[in-house]
Design a protein around this nucleic acid. Sequence first.
DNA 1: TGACAGGGGGTGT
DNA 2: ACACCCCCTGTC
Length: 301
Amino acid sequence: MSSDPCWSDWRPLLGAPLLTQGTFAELIDGGQSFRWQQDTAGSWLGIWGDCVVRLKLDSAGNLHWSAPAPITSHVDGMLPAYLFGHDTRTAIDSLPWRSDTHLARCLAAFPGLTILRQPFGETLLGFLCSATKQIVQIKQMVSLLAERHGATLIGAYRRLPTWGELALIPEAELRACLLGFRARYIHQTALFLAAHPGWLEETEHLPYLEAKARLCELPGVGEKVADCVLLFGAGKLEAFPVDTWIIKAMARRYRLDGWTPAQVSHFGRTHFGAHAGLAQQYLFAYERAAAQRERSINSTS
DNA sequence: TGACAGGGGGTGT
DNA sequence: ACACCCCCTGTC
C-alpha cells in the first residue's frame, strides 16, 4: 500500500515471558481486545490509543515488535505497560491453585497468559459492542467504527473514535457499522458522557465497587460489561465477569449447575480472591480450547 | 456454489 | 421470559 509507513526493524520485547502461539493468540485475540488482526503468517497488527504495532513470536517463544518509524519510540514506551503492566507472577501466586486442581490445570495450559491494560474509554466502547456477539463480529464492528469515524494515526491506520467524537455521530451512522441495537446504547452513552465531563476519568480511578456501580448507570452497561471494562481497561483484577461461557465452565468444573450469574459471581470473587479476574481469564481460555477440541472430535467422527 | 436456518461472551422491560 | 438487531457459521 502506498500510504503504508516505513516500519522499524523487529526488536525483542525485553522482559516478556516466553509464550506459545496459543497463549499469545489468547492474550491479544481471546476476547480482551478487539483490535488485533493476523497480518502475515504468525505476525499480528494491533492498535490501541495512539499506538500501532506489529507483534510476532519466534520459534523459541520470544516476543518481537515493530512499529511505524515515526512512532517507534512512543510505542516502545507504551507497549510493556499495555501487554505486561500487571505483576502477574504475584497475582497468580495469590490464587488458590494449591487447593484447586482445575485452576492449576488452567494455569498450566496457558503459561504467561495475563490481563491487558487497555485505554479505559475504548474498552468501554468495545464491550458495549459485545452483547450476544462473538469475537469475530465484535472485531468487525470496532474495525468499521475506526475506519469510518476514527482519526488517522499514521498511514491508513486509524484510532477508535473518542467518546467526544461519538457524541457527534448520528445513531443511524453508528447502526451502519453493523452495531444493531447496540447503536442506541453507544449513542446514548456518548450523549451522557458529553454532558458529564470528567465522569469517565473519575470512574476509572474509583475503587472497584464504586466504579462498577457508576458504569452500570450507563445505557447498555450491565454487570458483565462493567466487569470487563474494569478488568481489561482499568486494571481492576478483582473484577470477575460472568458470561455464558463462565456460567457453563463453573457448572461443569465446580458443580455449580443451576446457579444464577449473581451466585456464580459471588462464588468467583470469594473462591478466587483479590485477583479473581485473572483466574477468570485462565478458566475462560481453557474452556474455549476444550470446546474447540470437542468440536473437532465431533466433526471427524 | 449458493441459499437458509439457527444461534450468538447481554441488557432492559 | 422475551425483545432487541443482524452477521457468522454450519449444513444442505
